[in-house]
Protein backbone atom coordinates (compact mmCIF):
# COMPACT_ATOMS: atom_id res chain seq x y z
CA UNK A 1 0.00 0.00 0.00
CA UNK A 2 1.60 3.23 -1.04
CA UNK A 3 0.81 6.62 0.36
CA UNK A 4 -1.13 7.45 -2.81
CA UNK A 5 -3.45 4.57 -1.98
CA UNK A 6 -3.92 5.90 1.46
CA UNK A 7 -4.87 9.27 0.12
CA UNK A 8 -7.26 7.68 -2.29
CA UNK A 9 -8.80 5.79 0.55
CA UNK A 10 -9.06 8.91 2.57
CA UNK A 11 -10.87 10.50 -0.32
CA UNK A 12 -13.20 7.57 -0.39
CA UNK A 13 -13.77 7.88 3.31
CA UNK A 14 -14.46 11.55 2.92
CA UNK A 15 -16.93 10.82 0.14
CA UNK A 16 -18.63 8.14 2.22
CA UNK A 17 -18.80 10.45 5.17
CA UNK A 18 -20.28 13.17 3.01
CA UNK A 19 -22.91 10.70 1.89
CA UNK A 20 -23.62 9.82 5.50
CA UNK A 21 -23.82 13.48 6.40
CA UNK A 22 -26.45 13.82 3.72
CA UNK A 23 -28.38 10.91 5.19
CA UNK A 24 -28.09 12.51 8.58
CA UNK A 25 -29.45 15.78 7.25
CA UNK A 26 -32.38 13.94 5.68
CA UNK A 27 -33.18 12.18 8.90
CA UNK A 28 -32.83 15.36 10.90
CA UNK A 29 -35.22 17.04 8.54
CA UNK A 30 -37.69 14.23 9.11
CA UNK A 31 -37.24 14.00 12.85
CA UNK A 32 -36.80 17.62 13.74
CA UNK A 33 -35.70 18.14 17.31
CA UNK A 34 -35.84 14.48 18.10
CA UNK A 35 -32.18 14.03 17.25
CA UNK A 36 -30.37 14.63 20.51
CA UNK A 37 -27.06 13.16 19.57
CA UNK A 38 -25.30 12.45 16.32
CA UNK A 39 -21.95 11.43 15.04
CA UNK A 40 -20.43 10.72 11.67
CA UNK A 41 -16.95 9.35 11.69
CA UNK A 42 -14.84 6.40 10.64
CA UNK A 43 -17.30 5.62 7.91
CA UNK A 44 -20.25 5.19 10.19
CA UNK A 45 -23.30 7.09 11.38
CA UNK A 46 -24.89 7.28 14.80
CA UNK A 47 -28.09 9.00 15.81
CA UNK A 48 -29.45 9.28 19.31
CA UNK A 49 -33.10 9.99 19.91
CA UNK A 50 -35.20 10.21 23.08
CA UNK A 51 -36.92 6.97 24.05
CA UNK A 52 -40.30 8.53 23.27
CA UNK A 53 -39.30 9.12 19.66
CA UNK A 54 -37.92 5.62 19.10
CA UNK A 55 -40.75 4.47 16.86
CA UNK A 56 -40.84 7.69 14.88
CA UNK A 57 -37.11 7.45 14.33
CA UNK A 58 -37.50 3.93 13.03
CA UNK A 59 -40.29 4.93 10.72
CA UNK A 60 -38.31 7.88 9.43
CA UNK A 61 -35.31 5.67 8.76
CA UNK A 62 -37.44 3.16 6.98
CA UNK A 63 -38.92 5.90 4.85
CA UNK A 64 -35.40 7.09 4.07
CA UNK A 65 -34.60 3.68 2.57
CA UNK A 66 -33.16 1.93 5.59
CA UNK A 67 -35.46 -1.03 5.19
CA UNK A 68 -33.08 -3.77 6.23
CA UNK A 69 -33.20 -4.66 9.89
CA UNK A 70 -29.80 -5.63 11.24
CA UNK A 71 -30.24 -6.03 14.96
CA UNK A 72 -31.56 -4.44 18.09
CA UNK A 73 -29.92 -4.73 21.47
CA UNK A 74 -29.00 -2.87 24.60
CA UNK A 75 -26.02 -1.47 26.39
CA UNK A 76 -25.55 -1.11 30.10
CA UNK A 77 -23.12 1.72 30.67
CA UNK A 78 -22.52 0.89 34.28
CA UNK A 79 -18.77 0.73 34.79
CA UNK A 80 -17.63 -2.69 34.22
CA UNK A 81 -16.08 -4.61 36.99
CA UNK A 82 -17.87 -7.77 35.92
CA UNK A 83 -19.12 -8.11 39.45
CA UNK A 84 -18.16 -5.60 42.09
CA UNK A 85 -18.87 -7.86 45.05
CA UNK A 86 -16.53 -10.30 43.52
CA UNK A 87 -13.88 -7.66 43.37
CA UNK A 88 -14.31 -6.95 47.04
CA UNK A 89 -14.20 -10.53 48.12
CA UNK A 90 -11.06 -11.04 46.17
CA UNK A 91 -9.69 -7.94 47.90
CA UNK A 92 -8.10 -6.56 44.80
CA UNK A 93 -8.88 -3.26 43.16
CA UNK A 94 -11.87 -1.45 44.58
CA UNK A 95 -14.90 -1.41 42.36
CA UNK A 96 -15.93 1.50 40.31
CA UNK A 97 -18.06 3.58 42.52
CA UNK A 98 -17.96 7.18 41.50
CA UNK A 99 -15.79 8.28 44.39
CA UNK A 100 -13.28 5.54 43.85
CA UNK A 101 -13.08 5.93 40.12
CA UNK A 102 -9.84 7.95 40.20
CA UNK A 103 -8.13 5.06 41.92
CA UNK A 104 -9.36 2.73 39.28
CA UNK A 105 -8.18 5.10 36.63
CA UNK A 106 -4.78 5.32 38.13
CA UNK A 107 -4.60 1.61 38.43
CA UNK A 108 -5.50 1.17 34.80
CA UNK A 109 -3.01 3.73 33.71
CA UNK A 110 -0.34 2.32 35.90
CA UNK A 111 -0.96 -1.02 34.37
CA UNK A 112 -0.81 0.38 30.89
CA UNK A 113 2.49 2.04 31.55
CA UNK A 114 4.17 -0.71 33.45
CA UNK A 115 3.25 -3.82 31.62
CA UNK A 116 6.79 -4.99 32.09
CA UNK A 117 6.48 -4.88 35.82
CA UNK A 118 5.71 -8.34 37.12
CA UNK A 119 2.38 -8.54 38.87
CA UNK A 120 0.59 -11.38 40.55
CA UNK A 121 -1.99 -12.52 38.07
CA UNK A 122 -5.02 -12.27 40.29
CA UNK A 123 -4.19 -8.71 41.20
CA UNK A 124 -4.30 -7.95 37.52
CA UNK A 125 -7.58 -9.69 37.01
CA UNK A 126 -10.05 -7.03 37.87
CA UNK A 127 -7.80 -4.12 37.22
CA UNK A 128 -7.31 -5.37 33.72
CA UNK A 129 -10.98 -5.09 33.08
CA UNK A 130 -11.39 -1.97 35.07
CA UNK A 131 -12.19 0.10 32.07
CA UNK A 132 -14.61 2.36 33.87
CA UNK A 133 -12.18 5.15 34.28
CA UNK A 134 -14.44 8.07 33.54
CA UNK A 135 -14.28 11.55 34.96
CA UNK A 136 -14.68 11.53 38.71
CA UNK A 137 -17.91 13.54 38.63
CA UNK A 138 -19.94 11.57 36.11
CA UNK A 139 -18.10 8.32 36.61
CA UNK A 140 -19.49 6.78 33.49
CA UNK A 141 -18.60 6.87 29.88
CA UNK A 142 -21.43 6.60 27.47
CA UNK A 143 -19.95 6.01 24.10
CA UNK A 144 -20.47 7.48 20.68
CA UNK A 145 -23.33 9.96 20.23
CA UNK A 146 -23.52 10.46 23.96
CA UNK A 147 -26.02 9.33 26.52
CA UNK A 148 -27.32 10.39 29.87
CA UNK A 149 -28.62 7.28 31.52
CA UNK A 150 -27.34 3.90 32.43
CA UNK A 151 -29.29 1.97 29.82
CA UNK A 152 -29.38 2.50 26.13
CA UNK A 153 -31.25 0.58 23.51
CA UNK A 154 -29.59 0.62 20.15
CA UNK A 155 -30.46 -0.77 16.77
CA UNK A 156 -28.75 -0.98 13.46
CA UNK A 157 -30.53 -0.47 10.18
CA UNK A 158 -29.10 -0.83 6.75
CA UNK A 159 -30.03 0.20 3.29
CA UNK A 160 -29.05 -2.27 0.60
CA UNK A 161 -29.83 0.32 -2.03
CA UNK A 162 -27.75 3.13 -0.56
CA UNK A 163 -25.20 0.67 0.81
CA UNK A 164 -25.15 2.53 4.10
CA UNK A 165 -26.08 1.73 7.63
CA UNK A 166 -27.17 3.75 10.60
CA UNK A 167 -27.01 3.02 14.31
CA UNK A 168 -29.86 4.42 16.34
CA UNK A 169 -29.64 4.82 20.08
CA UNK A 170 -32.06 5.86 22.75
CA UNK A 171 -31.54 6.50 26.44
CA UNK A 172 -33.82 4.57 28.75
CA UNK A 173 -34.86 5.20 32.27
CA UNK A 174 -32.60 3.69 34.95
CA UNK A 175 -35.38 2.37 37.14
CA UNK A 176 -37.90 1.14 34.62
CA UNK A 177 -36.35 0.97 31.17
CA UNK A 178 -39.20 1.13 28.70
CA UNK A 179 -39.44 1.80 25.02
CA UNK A 180 -42.03 1.26 22.34
CA UNK A 181 -41.83 -1.95 20.37
CA UNK A 182 -40.99 -1.71 16.70
CA UNK A 183 -41.95 -5.25 15.82
CA UNK A 184 -44.62 -4.05 13.40
CA UNK A 185 -42.20 -1.76 11.59
CA UNK A 186 -39.47 -4.36 11.35
CA UNK A 187 -40.80 -7.87 11.81
CA UNK A 188 -37.37 -9.14 12.70
CA UNK A 189 -37.30 -6.92 15.75
CA UNK A 190 -39.76 -9.22 17.50
CA UNK A 191 -37.11 -11.75 18.39
CA UNK A 192 -34.45 -9.15 19.05
CA UNK A 193 -36.75 -7.40 21.48
CA UNK A 194 -37.40 -10.64 23.26
CA UNK A 195 -33.68 -11.20 23.52
CA UNK A 196 -33.02 -7.68 24.74
CA UNK A 197 -35.83 -7.99 27.24
CA UNK A 198 -34.43 -11.14 28.74
CA UNK A 199 -30.84 -9.94 28.68
CA UNK A 200 -31.38 -6.37 29.91
CA UNK A 201 -34.89 -6.20 31.24
CA UNK A 202 -35.99 -3.49 28.82
CA UNK A 203 -39.74 -3.58 28.43
CA UNK A 204 -40.99 -3.12 24.89
CA UNK A 205 -44.46 -1.69 25.02
CA UNK A 206 -46.74 -3.20 22.46
CA UNK A 207 -44.70 -6.31 21.94
CA UNK A 208 -47.16 -9.17 21.45
CA UNK A 209 -45.27 -11.88 23.20
CA UNK A 210 -42.48 -10.77 25.48
CA UNK A 211 -41.13 -14.03 26.79
CA UNK A 212 -37.78 -15.75 27.09
CA UNK A 213 -36.09 -16.75 23.89
CA UNK A 214 -32.73 -18.16 24.93
CA UNK A 215 -32.97 -18.73 28.62
CA UNK A 216 -35.31 -21.11 30.39
CA UNK A 217 -38.67 -19.65 31.33
CA UNK A 218 -37.98 -19.62 35.05
CA UNK A 219 -34.70 -17.74 34.73
CA UNK A 220 -34.40 -14.74 37.03
CA UNK A 221 -32.32 -11.67 36.47
CA UNK A 222 -30.96 -9.98 33.41
CA UNK A 223 -27.65 -11.54 32.55
CA UNK A 224 -26.12 -8.91 30.32
CA UNK A 225 -26.52 -6.15 32.86
CA UNK A 226 -23.18 -5.29 34.31
CA UNK A 227 -24.31 -5.98 37.85
CA UNK A 228 -25.28 -9.53 37.03
CA UNK A 229 -22.50 -11.69 38.43
CA UNK A 230 -20.78 -14.12 36.15
CA UNK A 231 -20.70 -17.04 38.55
CA UNK A 232 -17.72 -18.75 37.06
CA UNK A 233 -15.67 -15.63 37.62
CA UNK A 234 -16.79 -15.37 41.21
CA UNK A 235 -15.63 -18.83 41.94
CA UNK A 236 -12.34 -18.47 40.15
CA UNK A 237 -10.58 -15.57 38.50
CA UNK A 238 -10.16 -15.87 34.79
CA UNK A 239 -7.02 -17.92 34.27
CA UNK A 240 -6.69 -16.72 30.71
CA UNK A 241 -5.15 -13.48 31.85
CA UNK A 242 -1.84 -15.28 32.04
CA UNK A 243 -1.93 -14.39 28.39
CA UNK A 244 -0.97 -10.82 29.16
CA UNK A 245 1.76 -11.66 31.57
CA UNK A 246 5.18 -10.52 30.58
CA UNK A 247 7.46 -12.54 28.48
CA UNK A 248 11.01 -13.17 29.59
CA UNK A 249 13.11 -10.24 28.51
CA UNK A 250 15.16 -12.18 26.00
CA UNK A 251 12.13 -13.61 24.25
CA UNK A 252 10.54 -10.20 24.13
CA UNK A 253 13.56 -8.65 22.50
CA UNK A 254 13.72 -11.46 19.96
CA UNK A 255 10.08 -11.01 18.99
CA UNK A 256 10.36 -7.28 18.71
CA UNK A 257 13.40 -7.67 16.51
CA UNK A 258 11.55 -10.14 14.31
CA UNK A 259 8.58 -7.82 13.92
CA UNK A 260 10.77 -4.84 13.21
CA UNK A 261 12.70 -6.78 10.63
CA UNK A 262 9.49 -7.79 8.95
CA UNK A 263 8.25 -4.23 8.98
CA UNK A 264 11.36 -2.56 7.71
CA UNK A 265 12.46 -5.25 5.33
CA UNK A 266 10.32 -4.11 2.45
CA UNK A 267 9.17 -0.55 2.68
CA UNK A 268 6.52 0.87 4.89
CA UNK A 269 4.44 -2.17 5.61
CA UNK A 270 5.49 -4.95 3.28
CA UNK A 271 7.94 -7.46 4.66
CA UNK A 272 10.11 -9.91 2.78
CA UNK A 273 8.24 -12.20 0.45
CA UNK A 274 6.26 -15.08 1.85
CA UNK A 275 6.23 -18.63 0.68
Amino acid sequence: MSSADTEEQQDQHAAANAERQQVLDELKAALGDAVVGEEVHAGDLWIRVPAGEWRQAMEACKAAGFNYFDFLSGIDWMPSAPNPEDAETLSVEPDADADEAPDAEEAAEAEAEHEAEPQPSEAGTVAAFETAAGEPDSGWKTGVAGGETRFQVFARLHSPQRKLGVTLKADLDDESPQVASIHDIFFGAEWHERETWEMYGFVFEGHPDLRHIYLPGEFEGFPLRKDFPLLAREVKPWPGLVDVEDLPAAEEARQDAAINAAQEGNGADAGEGGS
Binding site: R156, E252, A270, G274
Partner: peptide, 25 residues
Protein backbone atom coordinates in the same frame (compact mmCIF):
# COMPACT_ATOMS: atom_id res chain seq x y z
CA UNK B 1 -2.66 -12.50 -7.44
CA UNK B 2 -1.28 -13.20 -3.97
CA UNK B 3 0.98 -10.30 -3.04
CA UNK B 4 4.29 -10.84 -1.33
CA UNK B 5 5.20 -9.22 1.92
CA UNK B 6 4.65 -9.41 5.59
CA UNK B 7 1.62 -11.02 7.13
CA UNK B 8 1.63 -9.03 10.32
CA UNK B 9 1.33 -5.32 10.85
CA UNK B 10 3.11 -3.86 13.80
CA UNK B 11 0.88 -3.96 16.81
CA UNK B 12 1.60 -3.48 20.48
CA UNK B 13 2.40 -6.72 22.18
CA UNK B 14 -0.35 -6.16 24.67
CA UNK B 15 -3.40 -5.17 22.78
CA UNK B 16 -5.43 -2.35 24.20
CA UNK B 17 -8.13 -0.99 22.03
CA UNK B 18 -8.81 2.74 22.24
CA UNK B 19 -12.18 4.03 23.26
CA UNK B 20 -14.85 3.96 20.63
CA UNK B 21 -17.54 1.95 18.96
CA UNK B 22 -17.23 0.06 15.74
CA UNK B 23 -19.57 -2.01 13.69
CA UNK B 24 -18.11 -4.36 11.12
CA UNK B 25 -20.17 -6.85 9.20
Amino acid sequence: GLPAGSIQAKVPRIIKVPEGEAWVH
